[in-house]
């Protein structure tokens, strides 16, 4: 469903993402794991067509993100790190607006909106202003906007960051409910999230992929924590070695 091949992003002379390749299969949840500043957000932005890659290719649902950006964007639901909410809108009008933007036909607008509201448990707050919602509800609205147009691919950037434990549990529940029908990529730096939600794990450090495997394979012999630490340490050591040569 998602095939990334040697994807690179440079900002001037700083390399944010260096030649990464991975794949995500249809209906699976891929966890994108890495420390802060590892290049998770940049990768996701490239996948969603927000940023153009410097080189390399990424295909989403068979379409190239650089050359067939519009097709890709039609098929992707994206929840950035900060949910992109217009504080002055009500939940209902906001979701209608997003549905229109995403190209939902006029006749299905109301249905798509109501489905998203129901699914994310927003019925009680549907008439409220986004500005007046709690953090957890805002995150739910963010999720709702990502799937209001029934995309094949969901890209979620740190979907549980800054939430209280109860909200985290709720959001995770919602995400788990989504898996199976669509491909989900979620980035996080919280390890338990990966073990709870993901089928596949990609560990990224300083712009490079240091580990890519199914979760079962990784956690067969060691805990995820160990795998993660080992990968990061190995990578850091390798870099230092490179630098000294």
């Amino acid at each position: 469903m998602i095939e990334v091949h040697e994807l690179t992003k440079r900002y001037g002379d700083r390399v944010a993402v260096e030649s990464i390749s991975f794949t995500a299969e249809k209906g699976r949840v891929l966890g994108f794991l890495g420390p802060n500043g590892a290049g998770k957000t940049t990768t996701m932005r490239m996948l969603t067509g927000f940023l153009p890659p410097s080189s390399g290719t990424a295909r989403v649902a068979g379409y190239d993100v650089a050359t067939q950006s519009d097709e890709v964007r039609r098929r992707i639901g994206y929840l950035p790190e900060n949910p992109p909410l217009y504080p002055e809108m009500t939940v209902r009008s906001y979701l209608t607006f997003v549905a229109r933007l995403k190209g939902v036909p006029r006749a299905h607008l109301a249905a798509a909106r109501d489905r998203a509201i129901e699914r994310m448990g927003l019925t009680d707050v549907a008439g409220r202003l986004l500005a007046h919602l709690s953090k957890g509800y805002k995150q739910r609205v963010g999720l709702a906007q990502a799937l209001v147009h029934e995309p094949e691919v969901l890209v979620l950037d740190e979907p549980t960051i800054g939430l209280d434990p109860r909200q985290i549990i709720e959001i995770r529940g919602l995400i788990r409910g989504l898996a199976g029908e669509r491909t989900v990529i979620l980035s996080t730096h919280i390890l338990p999230e990966v073990s709870q939600l993901c089928d596949k794990v990609v560990i990224i450090n300083e712009g490079r992929i240091v580990c890519e495997d199914l979760r079962e394979n990784l956690t067969r012999n060691a805990s995820l924590e160990e795998v993660f630490l080992r990968s990061i340490t190995r990578d850091t050591a390798a870099r230092e070695a490179e630098a000294t040569v």
Partner: peptide, 14 residues
């Protein structure tokens, strides 16, 4: 020295 690289880059062409 980056010029050659720069010229071939996609973003530069774009």
């Amino acid at each position: 020295r980056d010029l050659g690289e720069l010229l071939s880059a996609r973003s530069t062409r774009y």
